[in-house]
Simulated assay, not measured.
Amino acid sequence: MHLTRFRSAGVAFAAVALAASLTACQNDDGAAAQPGTRATASAPAQDPATAAPADPSSGASAKPAAKPAATPSKETARPTAKPAAKPAVTPTAKPATKPGGAPGAGCVTTAPTPDEYDPDEFALYRIEELPGSTGKVNLVLQHGAWGCGGKDTDGGPFVVSGEESRWALDQAAYVTATDPIVASTENTPIGVQELIDWVNAHPDSGLVFRYQTGDDGAIHRLEQVFTP
């Protein structure tokens, strides 16, 4: 009697334990499967090329993408027209000079007129001394112009005309001389007194000199012109 009751209670207890075990297994299986049901595959991004065109009725019209402005190539960017060539510069001819006292193109063949006189040259003939207080001496000279030389000459003569003139020379003037006053064909500085001594020893030589005047009107620079 007592044994039967124990067996019934044991069977009941086993049944309860089995039910609890089955319930736990079902709960474990559901929990394991639940994440799989939540994980959903993301929809792939829609390809703009395959996307369906916008519905015209929606009012939104798709505008085509603007094409970038074409960049000109280096070949087309370069100007094709070449700059005009500059005209060749023709050197200006220099006026003829008198080498060694030789005449230029404007030489005279007859006695020159005052309009033809050389403006800064004359022929010297004599020197007149003045009182020392003046600080000057007088040059006795004649104006003229260069004559035309012959084929066999190195230069033309200095042709004078008109009357003799007197021009004051400052005794402190800068003076240069060449042959025959000094033994040189190059202009050599000399003193005024040396010039006076030579001219007094060789009067009326007619040597040609180039001159410059100062503010007082007297000659302050006197340079002999070499004539071959």
Rank of each mutant, 00 (worst) to 15 (best):
L169K: 03
G106Q: 14
T37M: 09
P114Q: 01
T37K: 10
F13R: 09
L141I: 15
A177R: 02
G132C: 01
P68L: 00
G150M: 00
K94L: 14
P53F: 05
A33D: 09
V159M: 07
V89K: 12
V108I: 15
K67L: 12
A54D: 08
A31T: 15
D197V: 14
L3W: 13
R126K: 15
E164P: 06
T80S: 13
A69V: 15
P83D: 07
V108M: 09
A105V: 14
S133Y: 07
A96M: 12
D216G: 02
F6E: 13
C107S: 03
T97D: 11
T153D: 10
N138P: 03
C25R: 12
G149M: 07
A145I: 06
Q171F: 01
S161G: 12
G101N: 02
P53Q: 02
V89Q: 12
V89P: 08
G36E: 09
D170Y: 00
P44W: 08
A33T: 09
P53E: 02
E163N: 14
M1R: 10
V175L: 04
G156E: 01
K74V: 15
L139T: 04
T109P: 00
A19C: 13
A12C: 08
A45H: 06
G191N: 11
E121K: 11
A105M: 02
R38E: 13
A123Y: 03
A54K: 08
G10E: 14
H2P: 13
V160K: 05
W198Q: 05
E121F: 00
D29M: 13
A41V: 12
P72V: 10
A218V: 03
V225Y: 06
S184E: 01
D179R: 12
N138T: 07
V159C: 04
S184A: 06
K94A: 14
Q171L: 09
F122S: 01
G30W: 12
I190S: 00
S73K: 05
Q46K: 10
P68V: 05
L3I: 14
G101E: 02
G156S: 07
G132N: 10
T110A: 15
R210N: 09
A69T: 14
W198T: 05
I196D: 01
Q224V: 08
V160T: 15
N187E: 11
P228Y: 10
A93L: 10
A62M: 12
D215E: 11
Y174N: 09
A93N: 05
N187K: 07
P228A: 12
T178S: 05
A177V: 05
S205T: 11
H202R: 06
S161I: 09
L139R: 00
R210V: 06
V16A: 11
A69K: 13
R7C: 03
W198D: 07
R221A: 10
A168D: 02
G149L: 07
P83W: 06
A12R: 12
V160F: 06
G132F: 11
V225D: 07
A77W: 04
T227D: 06
K67Q: 13
G10K: 13
H202W: 05
T176I: 02
P203Y: 01
A43N: 06
G10A: 15
G132P: 05
Q34L: 15
V137Y: 03
L195W: 02
A15Q: 08
P53Y: 01
F6G: 10
T176W: 04
A45C: 05
G135C: 03
F122Y: 04
V160A: 03
F209L: 00
A123Q: 02
I181Y: 01
P35Y: 07
